[in-house]
Design a protein around this nucleic acid. Sequence first.
DNA 1: TCTCAATCTAAACGTTGTCAAGATGAACTT
DNA 2: AAGTTCATCTTGACAACGTTTAGATTGAGA
Lengths: 212, 212
Amino acid sequence: MKLPCPITGPKPYHHGDLRRALLEAASRVLEREGPNALSLRAVAREAGVSPAAPYHHFKDKSELMLAISEEGFDQLYKFMLQSSDPDAPPMERVAAIGVAYVEFAKAHPSIYRVMYDCSRDLESLPDKAHKAEDGAFSLLKKAMIDLGVVSSDQEVDLELACIAAWCAAHGLAEMVGFRQFDSLKAKMGGEKAFLAGVLSHLGMFGQARNRG
Amino acid sequence: MKLPCPITGPKPYHHGDLRRALLEAASRVLEREGPNALSLRAVAREAGVSPAAPYHHFKDKSELMLAISEEGFDQLYKFMLQSSDPDAPPMERVAAIGVAYVEFAKAHPSIYRVMYDCSRDLESLPDKAHKAEDGAFSLLKKAMIDLGVVSSDQEVDLELACIAAWCAAHGLAEMVGFRQFDSLKAKMGGEKAFLAGVLSHLGMFGQARNRG
DNA sequence: TCTCAATCTAAACGTTGTCAAGATGAACTT
DNA sequence: AAGTTCATCTTGACAACGTTTAGATTGAGA
């Protein structure tokens, strides 16, 4: 009856892999209609199932959102990874990671929105983002270690430096979205120059100005 | 019938000043039940009026939210103002403003949430926050001018420095809410030390560590 | 082939944002 | 002083939402 999606591998049950399908549907809704249109029912509709179907794969809406958020942080990690040459000098690498973070947020504002809306509700970032070895925060930490900016209290100071960098990147990622700064961007000849300009004022990203 | 609130001054119409009452009701709902419970109907209920009553004072829900957001940015401005001694050295003043920003967000997380949820929807900060002479951004800018950190291109570089500071403060304000950093805070002997530690890594707030 | 349990649907409930129609009553006119 | 006006508020309704319950479907193992 229902042809198994030829790629999805072992089709577990009726649909094939509704969990996966729902996440992809959510991604489509997000790109097409924005974060405010991302309802459970809209996702189910997009996936072609009933409004109650998602409840067999997610406890409630917030759990669906968390899954989307985790996927987002994973995409962010991969983008940061491919944007930072591991053989480049540490400072350049840190700057590249920061720029990649902001560019990701600008390129996928809806996903970025969900990533943090979800985190704010749970009052914690997903493990995928912070704890995981193959996550965005760990990638930043490795680059920071190579940079060697830590002072007396090694462990604590390294963590603080990474948090500071994350704060700066997140803050900037949210600000670039605001129209208040459009005229300044224009005056500087583009958003890229604007980003570099702000980053150069932000401690650990001093070198960002020398990129591109 | 309805006794006019003796303080509110000239009672305009039936209720007295429903617009004001709604904003105060919203504030109460926000403190009591958090940002996710802040519905138009809940606010109307709290103010003791029908669900449709607010529509005579606000075009729709988003306009109510904007008004709440503007009030929040105004409170933030006032708190920053009273937290920064105008006679203190500029660097100390900038640091005090940054610390005040983060402390405000931590003390009123629900209001802070609404302030930015609203801004993200409109893709712009309220004029109260950025444009207004008696606003938070202007206060920061004045302190920055006194600091004299601007380089060659005066105007642009000053603006960039202020934006960078705002980004850093906002980023940190959102991060302190995450439980990921609780253990680090404990290890450092409290949140205040944590905040100072992160701020000291963030460019223009280098002096923050020397406070308190 | 029969059974079973995972999966999905159908239908319903309470809640939300919003609107149209009508009731109310303060202020202005005469 | 009485009547008119119009902003203000209420009533009642609508569609959409998140969620739950009960029942239908169907792949997989006996």
